[in-house]
Amino acid sequence: MIDVKHLKKSFGENTVLESIDFSVQKGEVVCLIGASGSGKTTLLRCLNLLELPNYGSITIGDKAVNFSGKKLDKKEMKELRKYSGMVFQGFHLFPHKTVIENIIEAPLIVQRRKRDSLVIEGEKLLKKVGMFEHKDKYPDSLSGGQQQRAAIARSLMMNPEVLLFDEPTSALDPQLVREVLRVIEALAKEGQTMVIVTHEMNFAKRVADKVFFMDEGYIIESGNAKDALETPKKQRTKEFLQLLSE
């Protein structure tokens, strides 16, 4: 489903990702963990091409893109983005559109699908994430958890093969975290392929098939969730998990 090879990303002199290699199978849930500044978010943004890697290749679904030196054209970027949906830490719903308008906007404009059928499909998705009764509200009148659930539904409307989550609960009050995690867990049970950047270790243990631990731009440890989180091999991973549990 996802195959990343030799990925490198620098911002000027500052290298934030180096020699990243990993793959994700269809239906798998992968959690990216690590300290702030370790490169997790940049890696996730590279998968959606919100950041352009300097070197390496990314394959998602049938689309492979090689970044070695050449400039990527817009068509190629759009092609790769078709396979993934992104859920942001800050939700980024469109504030001037109601929840249902947010949900149907991209398929209406990008895929040029009919509004009536999109509304029916959108309402189904909103029911699934527990947001149906808020469909005609504007994002500003919703709680953070509700906005994030709407954002998840908005990504799902584009039928992505992979959902990418960038710290989906970090901007939420503790009592709102659970409602969002519940939606993500339900998606995992349905077999949705997902890559999730998170600091919620218990959630990662429950939901992830694989965990990648990142440090200073490298994936320094990976493996199945239980092993990597309960009996980590690398000292750096142990220290990080120890800090989180304190």
């Binding site: 919100l50 759009k78 983005r81 993934s84 949906g85 942001f88 906007e105 991209a106």
Partner: peptide, 12 residues
């Protein structure tokens, strides 16, 4: 973030 979420939704 508005530009980014639109780009992630494949909007030109």
């Amino acid at each position: 973030g508005q530009w980014e979420s639109a780009a992630a939704l494949q909007m030109g």
